[in-house]
Design a protein around this nucleic acid. Sequence first.
DNA 1: GAAGCGTGGAA
DNA 2: TTTCCAAGCTT
Length: 349
Amino acid sequence: MKVVREKLLEWYKINKRDLPWRHTKDPYLIWISEVIFQQTRIDQGLEYYKRFVQRFPNVKILAESSEDEMLKVWQGLGYYSRARNLHYSAKYIINELNGKFPNTYDEIIKLKGVGPYTAAAIGSICFDLPTPVIDGNVQRFISRLFAISEAVNTSKGQKTISNAIEKIFSKKEPGDFNQAMMEYGATVCKPVNPECDNCCFNEECFAFQRGIVNELPNKVKANAPKSRFLIYKVYKRMCDGETQYLLYKRDNESIWKGLYEFPFEEFNSKKSIEAELNEPKSLYGSVSHLEPLKHQLSHQTIFAFPILIEFDDKLPINVTLAEWYSVDQIQDLPVSKLINSVLKSLGVV
DNA sequence: GAAGCGTGGAA
DNA sequence: TTTCCAAGCTT
């Protein structure tokens, strides 16, 4: 297996993509890059990485930023708990660790939002710790190389992958080796249409030898997303000559926590929403229907029916914790893709 | 251990 | 159009 290790390292040194975080060993910058690219493709996150480290170039500046501002930079990237955990951990590093980034696996993994993968990545890249990473790329590359048919998204399958990595892992160059496995999985040993014609491991790859490359990795299938039906209530008013909208910050919910949105009411079917919308009523002002939106999440399908409720005066609205924001103020509020679509249809953004 | 957490691109 | 997937972590 020594030959696999050396071929992979050699391949990486020649073929690695030129990416911003590959020019540094600053644990702060590596940390940011690793968290941004959790469950996220390079194409999708690259500009976010550049913006994030430009705005928050070190852990102190991140720790001193406001949550809203940091979430605004993260807006559109998804999995917002990553951003909130970064912020929390930055304050922890400044306040509890005297600003010194932890340099052992056990200390690194204590950071909120840092799990086995990210701790191993930071440790190996920044501190030469001999800790193998296991991400989606590695699971695919290793399961094919060793023809492992166990489901990789189970603890048993993870253990098998982990044992297999030990056979080829380089403790001498752990950072490069870890990145090499991931880079190979991302660019050659791809999920669909892997480039076996262009692969230097045809002789060593058990899946290739057996003709089962496209059957691996094996995974336990995810559940089908559940449908949700929401009416978003867009309250709009003129106040002192400026247009204002009523929004609130999601503090207690799990999804989109920390982001702002319009108050909503949930229904259990599209039919019940249509019945509600067809019922003519005007409590405080004129009501008009905005463009319905379908928003696909990994685990939910949201059917959103925004309605615009325009006020003639300053009648108070009793919505918990919601506040009026001017169009200018809304530009700085972090919002989900879905709410951003509603704001676009209103011409606010 | 299983479910929840975003978004966008590819097939 | 639908499905899968992408440098995972938390509860």
